[in-house]
Design a protein around this nucleic acid. Sequence first.
DNA 1: GCTCCGTCCATAACGTGGTTATGGCCACCG
DNA 2: CGGTGGCCATAACCACGTTATGGACGGAGC
Lengths: 216, 216
Amino acid sequence: MSERTRGEHARTQLVEAAIRLLADGGAEALQARKLAAEIGASTMAVYTHFGGMAALTDAVAREGFRRLIANMATVGQSDDPVADLYGLALAYRRTAVEHPELFTLMFREAGARGQAVGDLMKDNPDSEAAASFRGMVAAVSRTIEAGRLKGDPLSVASQIWSAIHGYVTLELLGHFGRGDRGVAEVLSPLCVTLVVGLGDSPAAARASVGLVTTTV
Amino acid sequence: MSERTRGEHARTQLVEAAIRLLADGGAEALQARKLAAEIGASTMAVYTHFGGMAALTDAVAREGFRRLIANMATVGQSDDPVADLYGLALAYRRTAVEHPELFTLMFREAGARGQAVGDLMKDNPDSEAAASFRGMVAAVSRTIEAGRLKGDPLSVASQIWSAIHGYVTLELLGHFGRGDRGVAEVLSPLCVTLVVGLGDSPAAARASVGLVTTTV
DNA sequence: GCTCCGTCCATAACGTGGTTATGGCCACCG
DNA sequence: CGGTGGCCATAACCACGTTATGGACGGAGC
């Protein structure tokens, strides 16, 4: 194994170990010494590969966004764009629920590094986070082109993203109960409310959302 | 000054110093040693009055919720309940924007102590956070009684709270630009979308939201 | 007034966790 | 085969939360 690939390997090993620690120890468990132990090395590994815990945490957040994008990408484009949009909401929520600590970290870090996710609305290609938002704008555009929703895609996507992100944040904090109760009682109705408010007919909205609900 | 009032004084002094540190140094500046220096005492003050930084941080979060409730309480009950609801949204958002670090801490701590804000939907009288949600449920109930919105007050309030909270979270992270741009471009349209989706007529919704916009 | 008591808190130390200084190992290059 | 540079183990350093200890001070009871 060449010098270079060995280095890359250690890098990804560290990020993966970090995600593992995060998952079963919370944010407090993300420590240089624990990371080192996890990959069978000394804490110096963190510094040679990242320069410090801050940069490593940042890399972990980026990996989280990469997974979010991947999960959202699994939602295809059917002939019902509103159903697709609801599918994106469920994918967003599922990503968060499956790795709550990672999801929380992603948006905490986004705040810490100031603007890295800041100008998501301009399509900053540097930011992994921007890609997930662009996916949502594209989905919204299809609903508008199909005549289901009305309005500016960017504004509409911002509204929908706000609502979904807020729901997910509150669900992770324990509101809306455990399991999938919150989806049935809040997220699904919220999505119906949004698309109806944006121009869809109530019957069509309920039908589109109902289609996907069974595949939570 | 009696022993007891002196003690209480030190307590509130600590919380106020904490909020000050938070405001101009971020979450990282909230340190026992800095707090001690700020009130001209040793770090022991933190331990005699709170038992540790965790409990102090908790008290700071509670104070934050108390301020949120106070700000929401300034929104009166006019004869336009939808306008009042939008006023609540603006109050929520203003509270967050004026003390972003405190607002972030409030919901980070809510997660840390597990369920303290968790069962907001049952009205847990212990939690300051529950009171702010109850205020929103009450406002929603008035819109329903007035025939403007339709649905279960609890579910409707949960949807609206999710949307507003999500918008505020993302605005604090720097999306939606600086200043009040986000309010005009996302929050206001979002509120119109929500109430229309919940049964209000588009014209009435725009009128109610427009009424309040001038008093941001 | 004096003593006893409890609260509050200053000092100093400890534990943990991020970071850095140092030096050695080893692959690669001449 | 000696030099060079990346990688990293060891050990120390430093900041910060916490704790142990003892002293100061105000109030209660005599």
